[in-house]
Computed example of a mutant assay.
Amino acid sequence: MRDFRWPPPPDGGPRTYGPGPTAPRSGRPALPDPETELVATPHGVRLERLVTGDGDPVTVFAHGLGTGISTTRPLGSAVNGRKIFFQFRGHGRSEAPEGEWSYADLARDLRAVADLGNASRALGISLGAGALCRLLWESPGRFERAVFVLPAVLDEPRPEVARRRLTELLTAVRSGDAAEVAEAVAFEVPAAVRNTPAGWAYLRQRVDQLTRDGLATGLASLPGQVAVRQRSALAAVTARTLVIGCAGDDLHPVAVAEQLAEALPAATLHVYDKPGLLWTHRTDLRERISGFLN
């Protein structure tokens, strides 16, 4: 793999150095952002929301730290019924109350959006999986089905490498420097595609989003927190659940997925064999999620 460089090539293809192909290569342009709305919640924080589809069942989708609706939308493409995507506080157009935040605050955001939309099912990725875990810890019967994709934290703080990477991301976004942001998010792209049109398109979209919307300072304390105090309390959860992890992911240790599946009474665990599953196993992941939720 050639070295990562920024800014991206203007022609959409990988910029190469030294001998090698130099013809322009155009990547597929990113889809335009959908039209969203801001909704009021009972706890006083307005959240950005997108609703697609119609009918029952209704599923709410919760994103990871520093991402948003654009990350969760593809996972709902084959899910039946109405789908509600939203941005947690401090992300996108959602409001950012002052002070430090906890997983209890994120669970409150998730609960409000789910209640407003009468959602009976939920999916959470990474940070969203932690918020979903906290919500079910507080209200074990809230959902009929739930999917946890790449859970990162349960009742023990994240490992140091994860906290360091997330702190670097928050620092880069606060700097406002596009190159620093690109360096912080480059690890999200598998090495095999990092210098390809698809990789550049993803990085360009992520950098544009983060430099435009920013990330609230209230998120800075989350990497050192836990989602629940005792995982044993999850034994009261009544929902059928699917837990998805992958081996070799420093930010989302497979041990957390295994512990969560063991704590939930009606859980199915699936572990992919390598990281970057949103790139390497995207089709299988969508089919697995829709097969479970449908």
Rank of each mutant, 00 (worst) to 15 (best):
W200L: 12
A179M: 09
E144A: 10
F187E: 11
V185W: 06
P197H: 08
A152C: 10
A192V: 14
E168R: 05
Y202I: 00
R206C: 02
V193A: 07
F187N: 12
W200G: 00
E180G: 04
V161H: 13
L154P: 01
R134T: 06
L166Y: 12
G141A: 08
P157Q: 11
W200V: 02
Y202Q: 01
S175V: 12
Q209W: 02
D177T: 03
E188H: 13
R165G: 12
Y202A: 01
E138A: 10
P159N: 09
A182G: 04
N195I: 09
G199H: 08
P140K: 00
A178F: 11
E188D: 01
R204Y: 06
R164N: 11
G141F: 00
D177Y: 00
L154Q: 05
V161R: 13
V161T: 14
A152H: 08
P197D: 09
A191V: 14
F148D: 06
R142N: 00
V185L: 01
P151E: 06
L166C: 00
R158Y: 06
A182F: 03
A184R: 00
T171M: 05
A201I: 14
A191E: 15
E156A: 08
R158A: 07
R142P: 07
R163S: 07
G176N: 05
A192S: 15
P157C: 08
R165D: 02
R165L: 11
E144G: 13
P157F: 12
L136M: 15
V147Q: 02
P159Y: 15
S139F: 01
P159I: 09
E183M: 09
A184E: 04
T171N: 08
R158N: 10
N195G: 01
R204W: 04
V189T: 15
L136D: 07
C133D: 01
P197V: 12
T167I: 06
R142F: 09
E180A: 05
